[in-house]
Each structure stands twice: as structure tokens, then as C-alpha cells.
Simulated scan of single mutants.
Amino acid sequence: MKAVVIKGKGGPEVLEVVDVATPEARGEQVLVRVHAAALNRADLLQAKGMYPAPAGAPADIPGLEFAGVVEALGPDVHDAVQVGDRVFGIVAGGAQAEYLTTHPRMLAKIPDALDYEAAAAVPEAFLTAHDALITQGRLEPGESVLIHAAGSGVGTAAVQIARAMGCSVLGTSRTADKLEKAKALGLDFAIVNPSGAFADEVKRHTGGEGVQVILDLLGARALAENLAAVARRGRIVVVGLLTGAKTEIDLNALLARRAAIIGTTLRARPLEEKIAATRLFAAHVVPWLERGVVKPVIDSTFALDDVRKAHERMASNEGFGKVVLKL
């Protein structure tokens, strides 16, 4: 099969499309013929040698989400999926290839209205956003939520999920253009924050109370403002570290707010926890996709042989939504 392989450490230049052995479905695994795979920032970090794949995942084939067709079932698979099913899901690595193997409970069926490119733009973004907002952040209908990097893949998914729950949705971005596009997805209040200051704007839009939940994809440089912007007994859910991983924390501010800071990642979780998150996604988000309540947001689509251009687009931070590879 053809696959994107990381040759060395660096930027898009270390990526090559080569022929590798096709995996086999063994035990309780299914073989999926991948038709499209979306990119994530983790792919860029893995190419640089900064985010190695966990044990059991292909060490040199990037890709965390995919859409395709079930090609074969392992001998221990019973009833979860059938050969020919259109499916999408997340993996710990190896999605940027023509075939992959995964656990059947890590798959969800693609709604009829979505083609493979659109479906590939869903799993990582919507699973991450749903898990961070609802499972980790305990977001309740009608609460207020602040979503950083609202134009990113996770950001656009989070905006739509929060809107579907009837929440008041605030969002930040470095550019007004991305925020304007996010308004069409359900963003109520846009905050352009090139300087990193946003707490005063959050308070202005929330009557001085702050927001109940903050979905933070920024990391270090946003922490102090997050603590100033979160409501009493609010929850700050840290998903990304775009501005760094280390910073000081004002514990007085944390105590005064009686707030919680929650760190979360999907890739490093045990299989059982990933399955649980996938089943909640299938139960709650897929029906929204079927009814058009939420939708994937695609920035651009590239052929597999143009994977370097796709990674360059991802690294530029200029996109709105997901970058997708068509296989």
C-alpha cells in the first residue's frame, strides 16, 4: 500500500509517499481501506521528533483520523461492523495510508450525507471538542463558554457543539477574518487577541461574571488571562499548547475562583477510555451530523502525493477548519 512515511526529523520535507506492507486484521481488529485522512498539529510535531507515536501505533506513519470502508474483519470480531460499512474514527497513528487496522469499537458509521473528505474532517476535531467540553469540562446547556483558536479544527467543532447545547459562545483568534467565519457556525462574541489579552472582553460580554468553561488550545501564555476570565467554580480545560507548556500560576486567583484546571489528551489514553469517548461521540455527535445540526469545516483538500503541501498549509496557521488528504 501507499503511505506517508516520516524520513528523519524536520518539516514537510521529511515526508515521503512510499510503498509499505499492508497491515492484516488480526484478533479483534478490522482492516479499513482509507479514502481520506485529515491532518492535525500532532502530525507536525511527530515529523519534528517531538511527539512520538505511542506503543502499538506505526512509528513512522502519521495520521490520527480517517474515513473509509471496512475491508476485512479479524477472526475475533463479531457484530460490531460489517465488511463494506462506511466508517470514520481516530487512531494513535498510521491514518495517512491506504489501509489501517483498528478496534471495531473505535469506529462510527459515516452519515449518508457526508462524503469521505467531509467525514475525515470530523473525528479528531469533534471527539476532542465533545470530550473536552462535556466529559471533562462538564458543560451544561445554557452555560457560557470561551473557545480559544476558534478557527482551528477543534475550535470550529467546539463552537458548533456549544451552540447545539444552547450555550453562549465566546471565541478568540489572532485574526478577525477567522472569527467572522466562526460566527456562521454559532459564535456569539468574537475576541481578536493578538496581544494575548482577552479577560476584560470576556467579562464585558458576561456581565462581569466570566465564563463557566474555557476550552484552551493555547497553553502557557493564556493561563493568567484564563484565570481572570473564568467564572467562580468554572472549569479550564487545557487541550493544546500552541503558546508553550511552562508558565507560572497565580494560586490566589485559582483559589479565589474555586476553579478547576483540567488537562486532557486523547492520543495517550488507554484503549478502553478511547472506546468510551468514541461511543459517546457516536451516540451524541453523529446524530447531530445526520440532522445537519453540526458539520465538518474543511479548509483545503490535497492529493496524497501532495502531502508536503498539505503539511505546509497546516503549519502556516492560515487555515480555517481542517486540512484533508484524499487517498
Rank of each mutant, 00 (worst) to 15 (best):
V297I: 11
D250L: 10
A283L: 12
A283P: 08
L254T: 08
R232K: 14
A282Q: 06
D299F: 12
F302M: 11
R291Y: 02
V286Q: 05
F302W: 11
A229Y: 01
L251P: 03
G240L: 06
A282S: 07
I214F: 05
T243K: 01
L227C: 02
R257Q: 09
D250N: 15
A224S: 14
T265E: 14
E272P: 08
K246R: 14
E290L: 12
E248P: 00
N226W: 01
V294N: 04
L227N: 02
G234N: 00
A245V: 14
L217S: 10
I298V: 15
I261W: 03
G219D: 11
V297L: 06
A228M: 09
N226V: 02
G292P: 08
V213G: 05
S300E: 09
A253F: 07
V286T: 06
G263A: 12
T301A: 15
A220R: 04
L242F: 05
D216H: 05
V294T: 11
V294C: 07
A283D: 14
L242H: 00
L217E: 00
V213C: 05
L251K: 05
W288L: 15
T301K: 14
G292M: 09
A220F: 04
R232F: 13
L255D: 00
E225D: 06
T265N: 15
A259K: 02
W288A: 12
D216G: 01
L254P: 06
A268Q: 12
I298W: 04
A259E: 00
I262A: 01
T264F: 11
A276R: 13
G292E: 05
W288N: 07
L223A: 07
L254M: 15
L254C: 13
A283C: 09
A277Y: 07
D216V: 05
A231Y: 00
V239E: 00
L242W: 03
I261F: 05
R269P: 08
L217C: 13
L241V: 11
V294L: 10
A276L: 13
E225N: 06
R291H: 11
E290A: 15
P287M: 10
N226M: 06
T278P: 06
L217G: 10
L289A: 03
L254Q: 11
V238N: 01
A253V: 09
T243N: 03
G244C: 10
P287A: 13
R291D: 13
R257N: 13
A260M: 15
L241H: 09
L271G: 09
R258I: 02
L242E: 03
V285E: 09
V213F: 02
